[in-house]
């Protein structure tokens, strides 16, 4: 029993016929082949699958694609606009990644933070990342990367 959905992803409207049980992360990865959004724990803990839904950070393994029908999704692939997003540059400049698996989720969560709080303190950055895990334990440089981006976005 399939259902039709119309979901805007990174500015493009996609219409697909899907099973209602399909999770949003599988819709992105397997229907749209946007594999920048990763599946880590698949239990709403690690945050690797974080995307934006109507501008707010969401763990896309915890929502069905049908719930996003009519809504707008931004994934890591939608962050660069001709050139890298300041957060992407920040992670590059400050060595904010080792294996890189958690990076798309980290960037999407950080983008949500910076949208509401353009000049966060180190503590606020660390608090905002409570739902994103890094197994390389690169948190220190991740925080520096976000600070780098915040600075660039303000200048």
């Amino acid at each position: 029993m399939k259902t039709n959905v119309k979901i805007t992803v990174n500015g493009t409207v996609y219409e697909r016929e899907i099973e209602p049980r399909m999770l949003l992360v599988y819709f992105l990865r397997e229907e749209l082949h946007l594999t920048g959004t990763h599946i880590g724990c698949d239990t709403s803990s690690c945050g690797a699958c974080t995307v934006h839904l109507d501008g707010k950070a969401l763990k896309s393994c915890s929502m069905l694609a049908v719930q996003a029908n009519g809504m707008s999704v931004t994934t890591i692939e939608g962050m660069a606009n001709g050139e890298m997003h300041p957060l992407q540059k920040g992670f590059h400049e400050e060595h904010g990644l080792q294996c890189g698996f958690c990076t798309p989720g980290m960037i999407m969560t950080a983008a949500d933070l910076l949208a509401s709080n353009p000049n966060p303190t180190e503590h606020e950055i660390r608090e905002s990342l409570e739902g994103n895990l890094c197994r390389c334990t690169g948190y220190h440089n991740i925080v520096k990367s976000i600070q780098h981006a915040a600075k660039e976005m303000q200048s």
């Binding site: 709403s44 945050g47 974080t50 839904l53 707010k56 950070a57 969401l58 763990k59 915890s62 929502m63 969560t109 949500d112 933070l113 905002s128 409570e130 739902g131 994103n132």
Partner: peptide, 9 residues
């Protein structure tokens, strides 16, 4: 509750 992502939805 949970984390930012969970609180958002």
């Amino acid at each position: 509750i949970g984390d930012i992502q969970v609180r958002n939805f």
